[in-house]
Each structure stands twice: as structure tokens, then as C-alpha cells.
């Protein structure tokens, strides 16, 4: 029997599996670094579904062999990962390959120590993040987006009402001009209708 393709993939798999176990050996417990507590909190608090990609590169979290997961990282990226994981205190610039911009921003803002600590009360994360940072510039603070279960890195995703209010004031000139032009058109139609109907009545 022939299994060339599958055997090949087997070897590749072996290599990645080795790297993965090696990296995990550095830290105790493979599941400990993924924080489902936050996801559960977000889903319960916001009523929206969420997944790991709010903070992680991969939507199924950091464990595994797919892109953006620990199993797929190169030697250099693994080093980066370990450095980032050691950023216990706030204020350190981190570039963790398994985290997205929001994830890295959280670590920089509050430090890994607090990330670990707030697992028991995820709402504290929002408080610690403060109300100023807004990575996607949609006018809704990252902490608010976390609580609302919306994407903090997508400017067209957020609490609909907050987005509407923010965009309304952001585009107020455009809206004012649109209102002006439509207002003029309505006035114009109105006057022309009045003129036409009165002259039609006259004709009768």
C-alpha cells in the first residue's frame, strides 16, 4: 500500500509537535495561557457571541498548529513569545505573535500579572484599560468594545448606537450639507407643485 502524501504530512506534523511540546515545557500547563474566562464574561455581559480572536491572532486561541498558534511558530517567533510572556509589569512594549494588536495593547497597558489576576473578575480588565485608548478609531474606547463584545480592531464594528452617535458628529458637515440640499429640493418641489396646481386650476 502506498501512503506517500500522508507519510510526508506525518513527518511535518512530528516536527511541529516537537516544537509545540518544547515551547510548552517552558511554562507549566498548556491550557493555562489561554483565558476562556474572558470570553465567557464577554459573551455573558454583552449577549453577543465572541471568540478568541478578540485578543488572539487565531480565532481558536493560541493552542494548536494553525497559523497564529503556538504550534506553527518559528524559532524566532517562539523567542518573541517567551519574551512577551515575561512582561509581567505594565508599560513594556510587547509583540506577542499569538496576540493581535488589542491583545498586545492589553499586556502593555496592565502587564501579564494583572491579565492573570483579572481572570477571576474580568470586568476589572475594562476598568484597568481606561476609557481613552481606541485602537480602531471608531470613537468607542477599547474597554467599552471589550464589554460590548464588539471588535476593537474594526472601525465599522461596535455598539450600533454608540457608533451612530460618534459617526453622526464626525460627519456632521456632510450630513448638514445633505440636509441642506435635500431641504432645498423639497422646498423647490413644493413651490413648483404650488405654482403648477394653481395655474392648472386657473386654466379650468
Amino acid at each position: 500500500m502506498s501512503l506517500p502524501l500522508s507519510l510526508q504530512s506525518k513527518n511535518v506534523f512530528l516536527a511541529t509537535a516537537l516544537i509545540a511540546t518544547a515551547s510548552m515545557a517552558l511554562f507549566s500547563g498548556s491550557g493555562a495561557m489561554a483565558f476562556p474566562e474572558y470570553q465567557q464574561f464577554v459573551e455573558k455581559h454583552s449577549g453577543r457571541t465572541a471568540n478568541c480572536s478578540m485578543c488572539h491572532t487565531n480565532d481558536s486561541g493560541p493552542t494548536g498548529n494553525d497559523a497564529g498558534q503556538i504550534g506553527s511558530l518559528t524559532e524566532a517567533k517562539l523567542k518573541q513569545l517567551n519574551e512577551a510572556r515575561a512582561a509581567f509589569e505594565p508599560g513594556q512594549d510587547v509583540d506577542n505573535p499569538i496576540l493581535n494588536k488589542f491583545g498586545n495593547a492589553i499586556v502593555k497597558k496592565i502587564g501579564m500579572k494583572n491579565v492573570l489576576q483579572y481572570r477571576s473578575d474580568p470586568e476589572k480588565l475594562a476598568t484597568a484599560l481606561g476609557g481613552k485608548d481606541d485602537l480602531d478609531g471608531d470613537g468607542i474606547a477599547d474597554s467599552r468594545e471589550f464589554l460590548d463584545g464588539t471588535d476593537p480592531l474594526n472601525a465599522s464594528h461596535g455598539d450600533p448606537w454608540l457608533l451612530f452617535v460618534h459617526n453622526f458628529s464626525r460627519y456632521r458637515v456632510h450630513i448638514a450639507l445633505a440636509v441642506l440640499s435635500i431641504g432645498l429640493l423639497l422646498y423647490g418641489f413644493n413651490k413648483v407643485i404650488a405654482a403648477l396646481s394653481s395655474s392648472m386650476e386657473k386654466k379650468k
Partner: peptide, 28 residues
């Protein structure tokens, strides 16, 4: 057609507003 003052005034006002509004809308 539009010989009386009132209607003519309305018509011209209306056309002016339509023109300006239309121009503004087209520019946007």
C-alpha cells in the same frame, strides 16, 4: 402658463431652490 404673479413667483423660487439643491447634491 404661469401668467399670474403668484404662480410665477412660486415657480421661479422653486426652480431656483431645485437648481441649487440639485447642484449641491450632485457635487456631494
Amino acid at each position: 402658463f404661469l401668467s399670474d404673479d403668484e404662480a410665477r413667483r412660486d415657480f421661479i423660487k422653486g426652480m431656483a431652490a431645485l437648481f441649487v439643491g440639485g447642484a449641491l447634491l450632485s457635487v456631494g
